[in-house]
Design a protein around this nucleic acid. Structure first.
Lengths: 354, 354
DNA sequence: CGCGGTTACCCAAACGTTTGGGCCAAACGT
DNA sequence: ACGTTTGGCCCAAACGTTTGGGTAACCGCG
């Protein structure tokens, strides 16, 4: 392998080759249109530009960051990237970051407070310009501390303590689900509400419960259980629901992956989702539509949330005021809670078999 | 907001406060055990250490990288983080990186060659010490170019062109699936083989097909279709399979998410997975077990793959020889391809209903 | 011809580290 | 007593940029 480790080309090299001073080259290549006017004559500019990309010049970001005290780096904390919701939000963040010439730095905290602290320090140690937290805990004084230290940041997906955030209107989403189930005539419903420290689950549950209360059907406490946000969590939560009292006619799981666990648990109990019991999820994860009984769910604009989160952070970095954004959710009704669709599904199935 | 943006503490500040020279402080704080012995007297060392963490000193990574020409940064390219397989691998990478004092830098390429190139340049522009590719295309001269430039890298998940890689033994995994289906007496099987440029799908299909050929049951070409690696891809591939010729008795989908699409398509055709047709996936994604009819699949050590990938890269960076690793897969038989389990499932269901 | 204003540059300091080489004094060896 | 070691530190250069401040040459103008 003739793998030469050629020393990268620097401004100095370009300057020497052209008989110019390094500062001139710097201005020619990097000065913003507004200020670099008197940098060099246009033939010189031409020569510099040509040589620069002939040699494949790439600015050394470390030198630049050192000098300017700005790294163009953003730190992103998420509970876990293997959660498709956060992964998708991150895709949005990264996309938008690239458009702004920023790079991102993402790390998993598993929703463990000590890890959040440790990773935050680590990321800050990397001298990022700002942070995006996708793992905010609503109780968290931690974020207040971070804010007090003057670190610019925004929250995405979950809100907390009035810090600038870009989230889905989870409360509204919850109400939409309630509205839908009420229309279907459900009166005895249950909620698998997710982790109590995450605003997502709490708000969704809140909107849902409020709407039912308004309909004169308040949801009793034992019909609301907390659980982890994954399939195992949904399964465990559902088992607890099934263990206490009679079967509800519908269950709202605040997250699609949880809903899959719920579906598994119901199946184990011999219950047919869509027929014996309605199930509704949240997020409209790609596989919701592909499940054997397609899942009713609320579509939240995940990628857009990431994009806007980054945009807000950029505004903060520019010294502007950030504003919390509430993105609009959309209810997607499928067979898991719609007898009409369920019927058609089964009809097709029977025909296919015959 | 009393958000003071205190200038971070530097070696210089510590040195001044202690009446020492900055180089002494540097050696005290950062010299490796072997070489820093004669750096300072132990009382001095004590004083420096104490003051450093009293002031909360954090080494400036940009200055350090600039000086040492080493960034302790690793660039990671994946097709998409919203694919739980890659996300999990990345979790492993990140975990291991943290243990080695490295930070990672991950970005999505959507398997689009131009994006791969562009992102690679971008990441290299950030002066990473090495790269991990999770999106290798088997045809790719691109990786050869990268190697020729002397960039240290390893591949994970997919192998290509003899470059150092850490992958699951996909060929063996495919054989295991074939073995299992042969035991169940299947003679007419089909494969949804994924993207032709990804070694994962190709190898899995290869192992599967070889085993069937050895059993005297070669798989005809029209029984193997290519498709994207997600649910939509699985669905589309399956539709094509169903459109051509009689129903196979089993279908091997080289990826769990694809399998979900397959299940959706079969359901639309009125076919009961596990009864009318067997389905097998790959990767043992968390939801495979939770599906209404639990999915037989091959467990691949994804997180471990990430960890080992990073370890190999570290070895390369240390000047050692990297070696390609083949991780052992494990067959997980569930109801989607096991009549016994399927029976029990249905029995429970009926009992639950009664 | 002197003068103000451009134009087209150069200079040098600074950002915070790391690191090879000094230097001085004390301890040691003979 | 006199070299030699070694402990404990300091010096200064270097990494590649950015940026506020020159300055020399030239132009137009009165």
């Amino acid at each position: 392998m003739g793998a030469k480790k050629a020393r990268p080309v620097t401004l100095q090299m370009i300057a020497d080759q052209l008989g110019l001073h390094v500062s001139t080259v710097s201005r020619v290549l990097h000065a913003k249109p507004g200020e670099g006017l008197r940098a060099a004559s246009s033939p010189t500019v031409e020569r510099v530009r040509r040589l620069a990309d002939e040699l494949g010049y790439q600015r050394n970001p470390h030198a630049m960051s050192l000098r300017t005290q700005r790294s163009n780096l953003i730190g992103v904390l998420v509970p876990r990237l293997s959660d498709v919701v956060l992964a998708t939000i991150y895709e949005g963040i990264e996309e938008a970051a690239a458009e702004h010439g920023l790079s991102t730095f993402v790390t998993n905290t598993r929703d463990v407070p000590e890890v959040q602290r440790a990773r935050t320090e680590m990321v800050l140690g990397r001298r990022v310009d700002g942070m995006i937290f996708g793992d905010a805990h609503s109780d968290s004084g931690f974020l207040d501390e971070v804010a007090a230290r003057g670190v610019p940041f925004v929250l995405v997906n979950r809100r907390a303590g009035g810090h600038p955030a870009v989230v889905c209107d989870d409360y509204l989403g919850g109400r939409m689900v309630a509205e839908h189930l009420l229309e279907q005539g459900h009166e005895d419903v249950a909620v698998v509400a997710g982790e109590p420290y995450a605003s997502t689950g709490v708000d969704r549950t809140g909107g849902f419960a409020d709407r039912f209360r308004e309909a004169g059907l308040p949801i009793p406490g034992h019909r609301i259980v907390h659980s982890r946000f994954d399939a195992q969590g949904g399964r465990a939560g559902t088992e607890r629901l099934l263990a206490t009292g009679p079967l509800p006619s519908a269950v709202f799981v605040v997250n699609d992956f949880g809903a899959i666990g719920t579906i598994g648990a119901l199946r184990d109990h011999g219950l047919r989702v869509g027929a014996d019991i309605a199930v509704v999820g949240f997020n409209d994860t790609p596989l919701a539509a592909e499940l054997p009984v397609p899942l009713t769910t609320v579509r939240s604009p995940m990628r857009e949330m990431g994009r806007r989160g980054l945009r807000q952070l950029v505004r903060i970095l520019a010294g502007e005021q950030a504003e919390t954004e509430l993105l609009r959710p959309e209810l997607i009704v499928r067979a898991s809670s719609d007898p009409g669709q369920y019927e058609r599904l089964m009809a097709k199935a029977v025909k296919g078999q015959g």
